[in-house]
Every structure is written in structure tokens, then in C-alpha cells.
Design a protein around this nucleic acid. Structure first.
Lengths: 199, 199, 199, 199
DNA sequence: GATGAATGAGTATTCATTCAT
DNA sequence: CATGAATGAATACTCATTCAT
């Protein structure tokens, strides 16, 4: 950026990011428990801030919803541990799958809220698109894996959506029987891998 | 009144099943477009009845939601054409899959509203259970097909949920590219069949 | 009655007085328990008639309220047993007092509803006046008794109102301690008689 | 903010007791004119506040009613001027009576609303009890005065209720003929005093 | 006449958002 | 910037009354 740039954003970042995150976290919890129409007043209380404060961080509730969607997608992305390039394709997909399921199981509120947001009419197409952008490395993995499989003629997005959907189902059943988590997660992956690669 | 009737029971306009359905249909449309918190007043207007009329057919909005869930599940069930016992297992599953995807694609509002209801905290566990009861014949198909596959150790419900989830994804992509409906539906099924049977 | 008539309405007295009374009685009970804004629908149900039937007997709810007021005043009037002209003035007043208190205690719903109606803005001045008309014989008793007392300069209505108010208080306390009914009723009368006659 | 304040506690507009009172006063007027089911919206308008504001001061209408009851009882209590211990018993009771009647006559809305609230099923027994607590000094007066009278065997509450009831009647008649206020008030008291003391 | 479904104005209450402090 | 009282449009639900059967 040139020294002549007109818009200068000082380093003094007001509106502490900390408080912003606290609000998002409180919203996540409430949305999981009461649905997306949990009142902003309750979110504020859960976050330990004043009702009005929410609106210094988010222009309105819709903005809050969209930013929360991106934040949760970001957390999920961060949870998908680095995929070691040395490992085999199947192993890499397995690692991605496992971290996805693991994230959903250990962060049930985040996962459920993310699922609800994804279905909500308040999340814009733009936000949805932007949310997917971070997952391109997983996409390229899937692209390779699906080539010879039954979805060979379809788009990577199709395979990605399948992974999300099948992963969600798997999480649900792990949650119901946590003691069988490992086998459920593995069997779910086996099913997904067959669906993807045909073998 | 026939001359044979001895006891005269005066009767006001009977509650019409037709009107009940009109309301449910209007609700389906609005819920698909605006989410489950579409106001009852708008539902009434869309159904062409007075606001109060909704509450002669449904005690409150929650009841409306739950009954709508069951009604939509029922429509879906009815759409799953009779499965010919003569056909092979794979063929029967294929027919079920195809009718499911077809139903969702040609009834997008019903499908989306059903999906939203299924995630909503207002639908009781009891309603969910009751909704599944009608699908036991599909379940027994899946049970046979999954035995030797990767989900062999898991419950039928798991397989059923997978079918639902994978079908939903398939519908979404058919909707985006209707001209490729046939191939998308088939490829989706191929993926599902691999996931289910392992072959 | 002809053998051909299916529906036989006896003397063809329309709007059976019986049903009218049933409705008034049901209203009395509900008004006592829930206040005067108990819904007409509930009154109908309690009376065992259809919602609409109420409005063939009473043009609207206000009319129902006013007619109920008069009906209850009438019942009260009927309960004030004939006052034997042979008895002394004090004894006659005592009999009137005793029957009043007794009526209120043994008909708590009637009494409470009457009290509520009397305070309600929906009862017209005309109705109130008409309700008092039947009590002129009691009035003339009071008129004689009050002459030499502290209220000697005031109107009979004043004394009548005092009797009503003091009687109501007495009923309330009898209801709270029914086992002491007799002494409470007597002491209440003694107080009233002193207030009235000054001795 | 003073330079001496160490801790800065940001404060929004504090909840004003003034506004609370304005609402209660508006409610008093409307309840007197239209009965207790005057809509909250109209109360708000009369008080010059937004509809929602009522609910920042009173959790719901029932709470408003109960708090209004206590407020009115409080006003009445405050109106019962200090009773000079030097005066004779009868004179003290007379002062209490006169201030009571005077209060009711010069605050007809307060008085009528208080009377309606006292009969309403929405006022809890607890509120009623709490409302009476402030009147114990009057009670002890009555206790002395009633000892030798016709109510000697009864509770003070009985005498208190009589005073309230007889006072209410007196107010009503004063209101009808304001020019005769003094004599009506005195005669009413004479009647009450006879009822109480027997002389 | 009797019935109860239909009506729609009316009601208490909620809630996103603003703004005085 | 934070706060939370103030706002008023919006919402689910009620209820007196009408009217088709």
C-alpha cells in the first residue's frame, strides 16, 4: 500500500476484536439452543454486553448472521488439520473427514448453528460462496479422488456437498452413541469413500 | 334430511378438510420463501381465509408446524411409488431413490419446507418418530442392501439418513441444472449405491 | 301430534325460557370464577348450548350482562322472605337482614357476580334503577327505622346502600368462618341496627 | 463526570420513577372510565409513552394492576393525616373517617379504580395482604373503639372492612350531592360510630 | 331454532434498532 | 465507546358476532 493511500486505517483498531468474538460465541450458543430467532437482547446478555453494543459491531442482525456464518466456516476450516502431502490420497481424504466429524462432534453448538445458518434465507448467496472459498485444497483432493468414481462426470461442488451431508449424518449418529464414535466415524468414511471413488 | 332420521342433530358448516389442506399448502409456500417465521397473518391471506380461521384448524402455530411436517412426510411417502417385489434389490432401491429425487425436484417448496421443519426446534421428537413410521418398507430394503456394505455394522436408520442426505444434495444440483437432471440423478444414485452396498 | 311430523315442537313456545335460564346460570358461575370478561364461547359450553345460541336469547353480551343483573336482583328479592307485618320493626329488619346474609352465603357465585355487575361500567343506570324497584317494601321498613337515627336527615337510598354494604362485609366474614355464621350474622345486624336507629 | 471518579460506569438513561408514576396515573384514569380491561396501548398513549415502554416498567399487565393497587393504597394511606394522640378516641376515628371520605371524594378515579382492583381476580391475596399492612394504626384505634360495641366479639378486620364499606357508600352519596358533603360525611360517621361503639 | 365454522378487529407482548446519558 | 431505556411496528392469538347448514 502506498503512502498516498487515501483511506488510512490506523493501527488503533477500535471496537475490540475480543468483544466481537464474545458476541459471536454467545450468538452461536443461543442459536443452537433456541434457533436463529433468539433475540439480540438475550445474545447481549449472554455475551455480557449491553443490548446496544451488538450494533456497534454488527450493523444489524442480518449482518451478524452472515458474519457468524463466515466465522464458523473459518473455525471449521481451521480444524481441518494440515493435510500431509506425503500421505496417500485416501489417507488425506480420511484425515479431512475425520477432522470434520471430530469438529462437529466436539463443537455441537457451532455445528448445529452452522447448519441452521446454511439453510436460512438470511444468509446471502455471496456469503455462501465466500464461505466455500477457503476449502479449495480439500476440493482439489476430492477432485482427484472422484475422477474414476460414480461422480466422475459431476462437479467438485457436488462431491463437496456429499461430504458435508454424509459427514453431518455421521456426526448425528456419533452424538447419539459417543462410545461407538470411532467405528461410526470409520464406517461413515468407508461409505463416503465408496460413494466418491467407487471402490 | 331423510324421512327416516328420528333424531335431528342441527349442524353448522362442518370443518372442511379442504380448507385445512389449503392452509397447509399456503404455509408450505410461505415457509419455503420466507422461513418458518412467516407470520400466520400472511399464511391466512395466502390461503384466502381469515386470520382467525387458522386457529380453528390448528390450536397454535406449533401445532400447525408439526402437522405440516407430518403432512409433507405423508406426501413424500405417497410419492414413493409402489416398489415391485419382482424387481431386483438394486432396482427397487433405484426406484425409491428416483421417486425421492423426483419428488423433491418437482416439489421444491414442499421439500425445502420439510427440510427446514426437520431442523426446527419446534418439531417434537414424537412428531419426528411418527413421521418415520411410514417408511418401514424402504427401511427393510436398505437393511438388505447394506448388509455386505461398509455400513453393515450400523443401524438402518443410519443408512436411511444417508439416503435422505445424499438425495437432498442430488436434488439441489438437479435444481441448478435441470437439463442434466437424468444424469445427475443417476450418478447420485450410483454414489449412494456404492456407499450402501460397497459395490 | 301427527304421525308424519319428524320434528315436534310442542306448544311452539320459541326460545324456551328454560334455555335462557340455563345460559344465565352458566354465566353466573363463570363470571364468579373468571370475572365478567369470561368469553361467551365458554359460557355457551358451560350451558351446554352452541356459541351462537346465546345470541338468539340475548342480542349481545352487554344485554346478557344487564339481564343477568336483573335476574340476580330478582333471585335476591325472592329470597327476602315475606316480612310478617305482625312482627316488630326491629324484628322485620332483622328478618330482612338475615335472609340477605343467608342468601349471599348460600349463593356465593350469585352474590359475587351481582357485586361485580353492580360495579361494572356495562350495567346502565336504567338497569340499576330497575333493579332497586323491587325492594320498596324493605325501603319503607328502613325509612321508619332510620327516622330517629343518625341517618335521619338522609335518603332511604343511603340507608339501603348501607344495608347492602354492611351485609356484604358480613357475608365475607361468614364465608371465612362458617362455623361462626350465627354470631357473625347477629353481630353484623347489631352493628347495622345501631347505625340505622342509633340505639 | 467528576475528575474524582476512578471507575467509569457507562450509564444509559436511568429508568425514571417519574415515568413509572405517569403510567400508573394514566392507568388509574382509564381504569376508572373504562374498567380494568382498558387496553395497555391506550394507557401508553394517555401516559405519553410508547406502547413498549409500559413493559419496561411492569413485566406484564397483571403486575401493573397489582402495583397500581399498592400505589393507590399507599396514596390513601398518605391521605389519612397524622392522628393526634392528644385527641379523644372518637375524635381520632372521626379524623380518620373524614380523611378517608375526603380522599375518595376528591380523588374519584383513584377511589373507583382501587375499588375495582380490590374485587378483581387478578389481584393476588399477597398483594391484598400487603396493602392492608400500612393501616395498622387505624386498626388499633378501631380495636379500642369496638370493644364495648356490638362487634366486640369480632376481629378488627371486620370493623375495618365495615369502615371501608360504609365510607364507600358515604362517598358515593357525597359525589351525588356535593353541596351537602359536610352533613353527609358527618351523618355517615355518626352511623359508623354507632355501629362500632354501640353509642 | 340450533349449531359451530368463519370472520377480523382488538389485545398483550416481543424485539430489532435508536439515542440520550 | 458502552449502556440500557425508549420506541413502535410486528406477531400470535382471542373473542363477540354473523351466517351457512
Amino acid at each position: 500500500m502506498s503512502a498516498y493511500s487515501i483511506i488510512f486505517i490506523p493501527m488503533a483498531r477500535p471496537r475490540s476484536d475480543d468483544k466481537r468474538l464474545t458476541i459471536l460465541r454467545a450468538a452461536t450458543g443461543l442459536f443452537a439452543e433456541e434457533g436463529l430467532n433468539a433475540p439480540t437482547a438475550r445474545i447481549a446478555k449472554a455475551a455480557g454486553v449491553a443490548e446496544g453494543t451488538i450494533f456497534t459491531y454488527f450493523a444489524n442482525k442480518d449482518v451478524l448472521l452472515n458474519e457468524l456464518y463466515l466465522a464458523l466456516k473459518g473455525e471449521l476450516r481451521a480444524a481441518l488439520a494440515a493435510l500431509p502431502a506425503s500421505a496417500s490420497l485416501k489417507e488425506q481424504v480420511w484425515l479431512a473427514w475425520r477432522s470434520y466429524v471430530h469438529w462437529g462432534v466436539s463443537n455441537p453448538q457451532q455445528h448445529q448453528t452452522l447448519a441452521r445458518l446454511a439453510m436460512s434465507p438470511q444468509i446471502t448467496a455471496d456469503t455462501l460462496a465466500q464461505g466455500n472459498r477457503a476449502f479449495c485444497d480439500v476440493s482439489s483432493l476430492l477432485e482427484q479422488a472422484m475422477r474414476a468414481g460414480p461422480l466422475g462426470q459431476q462437479s467438485v461442488e457436488f462431491a463437496g456437498a456429499m461430504m458435508g451431508a454424509m459427514g453431518d449424518v455421521t456426526m448425528t449418529f456419533v452424538r447419539a452413541r459417543p462410545e461407538a464414535a470411532a467405528s461410526i466415524c470409520q464406517d461413515g468414511f468407508a461409505a463416503f469413500w465408496h460413494a466418491l471413488s467407487g471402490a
